[in-house]
Design a protein around this nucleic acid. Structure first.
Lengths: 125, 125
DNA sequence: CAGGATCCGATCAGATACTG
DNA sequence: CAGTATCTGATCGGATCCTG
């Protein structure tokens, strides 16, 4: 059965410029999204934990990525009004579902990194 | 068994800032990479065929994406010196391997697009 | 601790014009 | 047909400073 996009009644097709799938794919394709979603698969994480786990991410980008994931319904943000504040991030069921293909992609890359480095034409960016 | 990155002898870990996996992941995360690799899974394609299949891509971006995929060893570019020229693109074995998790990601998005649209907070970019 | 606000350079990405 | 070259606006992303 083909997935239909509710309002349009058209089948979802990422190759079509008008399909909303494209926007979502663009978000997922962000530089840090894969790593953040993947990190959260290990379970609930606090802001600072995440920033340590995802090495090299600035707080600006981490915050921005988390806000986007929240807006897309992949992540929940829970604020405990204590002092000091404690903010926990967690995957929603939808986010956990997304984490599967995302983890697969990261794992593929890790597993094939040597092959890639070998077959790559010398061109260090 | 853990994958070792040849020159360093360290295990591949995408969360580590120094791991080459990160650069590759960044390439893959490009706006058009997913769609181009995915399109090529159907088989050999000419430049114009690709530009039609991946709706909305400019030739600049298509060319740039294809060159990057070539440099990373995911795609071959075959020029037939005829008039008019005929240039064919194809996945390498490595590229076909990569296409699997990539296709999984596109399919996941297509299959869950309605759920995502529902759970999304109103915020049309 | 978990960010918000701001500045600024790098890069991305589209539109347009031209070519072997 | 399959690009290259160029210009320009958008955005990404890092560094820095500030706060409840």
């Amino acid at each position: 059965m083909t997935t239909l996009v509710e309002s349009s009644g058209l089948p979802a097709d990422a190759f079509s410029a008008k399909c909303p799938t494209r926007q979502v794919l663009d978000h997922i394709a962000g530089k840090w999204t894969v790593l953040v979603v993947d990190a959260l698969q290990a379970g609930t994480m606090r802001y600072t934990e995440l920033s340590r786990r995802v090495e090299g991410v600035s707080q600006k980008m981490l915050t921005q990525t988390l806000r986007a994931l929240e807006a897309d319904g992949f992540v929940t943000r829970t604020v405990h009004p204590t002092i000091p504040p404690r903010v926990e991030y967690d995957l929603t069921p939808l986010g956990r579902s997304l984490a599967e293909p995302i983890t697969a992609l990261r794992r593929w890359t890790e597993e094939h990194i040597n092959e890639i480095e070998e077959s790559r034409t010398r061109r260090v960016p």
